[in-house]
Simulated scan of single mutants.
Amino acid sequence: MSSPPHSPPDPDPSPSPRDVRRWRQYLADERAEAAVYRELAKRRTGNSQEILQSLAEAEGRHAAHWLALLGPHVGKPRRGGVRTRVLGFLARHFSSVFVLALAQRAEGRSPYAGDAHATDTMTADERIHEEVIRGLAARGRNRLSGTFRAAVFGANDGLVSNLALVLGISAAGVSNGTILLTGLSGLLAGALSMGAGEYVSVRSQRELLEASSPNPDTHTALTHLDVDANELVLVYRARGMSATDAEMHAAEVLRNRDVDLDATSASPAIDEHEAIGTGFGAALSSFSFFASGAIIPVLPYLFGLRGVAALVTASVLVGLALLITGAIVGLLSGAPPLKRALRQIAIGYGAAGATYLLGLLFGTSVA
């Protein structure tokens, strides 16, 4: 996570103007990143706070490297890059997985690997920092994954399905009133269906997990177990332990009856129930986001646009929304946001375009 102390480099007596500009930007970015980690640390406690403070100290050491190289050429303090400034603003006003996801991407874009004036230790630090931030963000992503999944699916389904519905009906040659009524009906029917489906899906998944989780009342049976037979060994073997490990762990549990029956490993486990979320939360999220997505293709018709103008406006609005949701998914998942955004819009326009062609065919056949 942090590099060992090392002597600062001697300043270059005659650096090129290009080197000076680059080093000054590196210095500004390192100072800005250190400030981001200090801001995040203020909103955390315990282990997370200590880790973020250590990251800030590491960035401070990197800043000292560029400061020493610059020597008398340091000049006036510069501002960090746009991305770093945006990250600093978010860190000052928010403390969420979204900020950590942006910090993770910032660490992953470090230019030090291709810069001869950056030390190997600094390059290694930046790579490790990305993994540290990934670890800090993991629990937040885990908590978010259930309702976030429902929200993303709901918004995209609303955008794509209602755009496809509106375009298909429009291509069939029906009146604006019919298009508007169809779009609003699709919004309501789809949102209710998505909400109900998410509730049933999440509840069923949680019930399956609960059926596989250890029964806490089983602990009361420990005092009556036959020590020689030790049926407890079978419990741990059924959970995947080897016979030897199961016997050792069962013997430890019986020696100390306060040991948790489910303490089969010292490694931290992810709460699967937390990752899935609640049925009500997923349903509400899915309903709300489907409705918010599905209303967008209908807006031009609500404001009185007709014909091609309405179709083009609806398509553009939906395209922008798909780009935004795709970019957000990319940022939170640590993937390239532009790639995810383009993928979203390609899928959405592909589905809507196919429905529009079917509407044209249907309308022609009716005529």
Rank of each mutant, 00 (worst) to 15 (best):
E210Y: 05
A229V: 15
A211M: 08
R206L: 11
E231K: 14
V227E: 12
S201V: 02
E210H: 13
V200C: 14
A211T: 05
S204T: 11
S212V: 02
L208K: 05
T218I: 12
E231V: 15
L234H: 14
D228S: 14
D226S: 15
A221P: 01
A229Y: 14
A221S: 13
R206K: 08
H219T: 05
T220D: 03
V227Y: 15
H219P: 02
S201C: 02
H219E: 09
L225W: 03
R203E: 05
P214I: 01
Y199F: 10
V235W: 02
L234F: 14
N230V: 02
Q205H: 12
N230A: 07
Q205L: 11
V202H: 00
S212Y: 04
N230C: 01
L225K: 04
P216C: 13
T223R: 13
V202S: 07
L234W: 13
T223I: 09
S201T: 06
N215P: 05
T218W: 03
V227C: 07
Y199S: 00
D217K: 14
L208M: 09
T218R: 15
T218H: 10
V200K: 08
S204Q: 06
E198D: 11
E207M: 13
A211W: 02
V233Y: 02
A221N: 05
Y199C: 00
T220R: 14
